[in-house]
């Protein structure tokens, strides 16, 4: 049974989370503040941590940083207020593997949980990767792991070889991204568009769609 720790200063939210996650078959620990959350993390080593960002005292970003210091591979999912994309990106920069918006809907929670479990099943963390395969006139670019850097120089040196083609950027289930990665992705799309390619992105995880929308990635595509 996987262990989950939830950190939130609102008691009813903790109760609700606990009831739902228990029913899904998880073993749940709860903490009403960051400090006791860290203590529980050290004691119980939960597989997945959900932490609210806005909390009095130690906030979610600090909790995230501390947990990442204890275990860099920990799966920390940050809970942000409705539409608070900036905070979400900031959390991703600090190493959160995912985020969900309040009020939390079932689809987002399931997506975050499934992706966390999928990443936990991998022995070593998947590095940022971009591989290309060609099918007829169509290219499939597979974007994997934590995208946190420029994609052009390191991963796609021969950008000029893609012209007037249909390019499908495929995102896998273990994908995560931070602000550098977002810049890198926009840069990549712009470069590809400049070369008259038609680009499509598929497989964006449920919770990342608002980030893709707000940061203009989807706009660049259009």
């Amino acid at each position: 049974m996987k262990k989950i720790l939830i950190i939130d200063d609102e008691k009813p939210t903790l109760s609700m989370f606990k009831l739902f996650l228990n029913a899904y078959g998880y073993y749940v620990f709860t903490a009403e503040n960051g400090l006791s959350g860290i203590d529980i993390y050290k004691k119980e080593s939960p597989d997945i941590v959900f932490t609210d960002v806005k909390m009095p005292g130690m906030d979610g970003i600090e909790v995230l940083s501390k947990i990442k210091k204890i275990n860099v591979r920990s799966e920390v999912i940050v809970i942000t207020g409705h539409g608070d994309i900036d905070l979400a990106i900031q959390s991703l920069d600090y190493g959160a593997t995912d985020y969900i918006n309040k009020p939390i809907n079932r689809k987002s929670l399931d997506s975050a949980l499934n992706r966390a479990i999928s990443r936990l099943s991998i022995k070593s963390p998947e590095p940022c990767g971009l591989s290309v395969e060609k099918h007829d006139q169509k290219y499939k670019m597979h974007l994997t792991g934590s995208v946190n850097c420029s994609l052009l120089s390191d991963h796609l040196p021969n950008i000029n070889s893609y012209r007037n083609s249909f390019i499908e950027i495929c995102i896998n289930n273990n994908f995560s991204i931070n602000s550098n990665g977002i810049k890198g992705l926009i840069e990549l799309i712009n470069e590809l568009k400049d070369r008259k390619n038609y680009i499509e992105i598929n497989g964006i995880p449920e919770n990342f769609i608002p980030i893709f929308e707000m940061t203009g990635i989807l706009k660049v595509l259009k």
């Binding site: 009813p12 939210t13 609700m16 739902f20 309040k102 009020p103 939390i104 809907n105 079932r106 929670l109």
Partner: peptide, 15 residues
């Protein structure tokens, strides 16, 4: 009102 918001959270989470 807080309780009603919480009930809404439950509604959203359980769909």
């Amino acid at each position: 009102l807080k309780t009603s918001n919480h009930l809404n959270d439950i509604a959203v989470l359980s769909g």
